[in-house]
Amino acid sequence: MDVNVPESMTPWLHVGPAGEPVAPAAEGLTIGEVASLVGISVRTLHHWDSVGLVHAQERTSAGYRAYSARDVARIHRVLVYQELGFSLTTIAALLDDPTVDETGQLRRQLDLLEERILRLRRMAEAVEQVLASRTAGAVLTAQQQAQIFGRGWREDWADEARGRWGDSDEWAQFEENVAVLSEADRHRVREDGETLYTELADAKRTGVAPGSEAANQLAERHRAMVGQLFACTHSMQVCLGRLYVQDERFAATLDAREPGLADWLAEIIDANARLHGVDPDGAVWA
């Protein structure tokens, strides 16, 4: 039976003349051979040796470091944990913990890798959807818009927004983020927005003052809500606050919840922006 084992997945193996995996020589592998097999630099291996992460346990007849199959297997496990985002300190603690079952640890690594592969596959599928939508010139349907912005959202508003901001990076980010939302996600975004605007109206009604801790927290929640659709800086949020006041449609929608809400929301956004080093009078869309 033919054996086909990718070197990248089994760096502790040599490949024989017929392509079959064979164990390292009894004398072990030099640091240069290991670096070549595993795909990392000799300098990295020296560093890992100096910090006690991976030691070459043997020496060649010439006195050089010699890595055994067990040493290289440890390197492979370090690389897997690095791929998963663990620090070298954490990796060393995991690998050197005498209470940890190595087989169980490897199974856990496999589970984590499979979870990451699944996330990356979903991200790739999402990017494919965005590319397909852009190629087809597709936009959100009226129903999808309502699921995000509420029943009061009108399709002509989307057309106007696209004409005003369609060439911006934020609009591209908005379309990409929204394109991958499921129906349930769109419903959740809308419900989160409804909850927040209800709390904003209640805060305005009960006299929460702009600049207070409660008002600043609400302003940050508003920025986080917008951030679900595109990255929103404090300066950009100030620009949105101006729009809420200056555009009669936005002002009417907000003030229908609580008289004066549009102005008050702009005020708490401005006050919170000052707290984060942004002068509202000079705020720009950036």
Rank of each mutant, 00 (worst) to 15 (best):
M1I: 05
V3R: 08
N4Y: 09
P6G: 04
H14S: 10
H14Y: 14
P17W: 00
V22F: 05
A23T: 02
E27R: 02
L29C: 14
T30D: 01
I31L: 06
E33L: 02
A35I: 00
A35S: 06
V38D: 02
I40Y: 04
H46P: 07
H47R: 04
S50N: 11
V51S: 09
V51K: 02
V54C: 11
A56G: 09
E58S: 15
T60H: 01
Y64R: 01
R65L: 08
A66T: 09
Y67T: 06
A69M: 06
R70N: 12
V72A: 06
R74K: 08
H76A: 13
R77F: 06
V80E: 11
Y81A: 14
Y81H: 12
Q82M: 05
Q82W: 03
E83L: 07
E83V: 03
L88S: 07
T89P: 08
T90L: 12
L94E: 08
D97Y: 01
D97N: 14
D97G: 07
P98D: 00
D101S: 12
E102L: 14
G104K: 09
L106N: 12
L106E: 12
D111S: 10
E114C: 15
R119M: 11
A126R: 11
E128I: 05
Q129P: 14
A132C: 09
A136D: 13
G137I: 07
V139S: 04
T141K: 01
A142W: 01
A146L: 07
W153Q: 10
D156N: 14
D156Q: 13
A158Y: 13
E160R: 14
W171Q: 09
A172P: 05
N177A: 11
L181C: 04
S182Q: 02
E183I: 07
R186S: 05
R186F: 05
H187P: 04
R188S: 14
T195D: 11
Y197S: 01
E199P: 10
A201Q: 01
A214Q: 12
N216P: 03
N216R: 13
A231D: 13
H234R: 09
S235D: 03
S235T: 08
S235L: 06
G241M: 04
L243M: 14
Y244N: 01
Q246N: 09
E258Q: 14
L261G: 03
D263N: 07
L265G: 00
L265T: 08
E267P: 07
A271Q: 03
A273M: 01
R274D: 00
R274G: 06
H276L: 06
D279E: 10
D281E: 15
G282P: 06
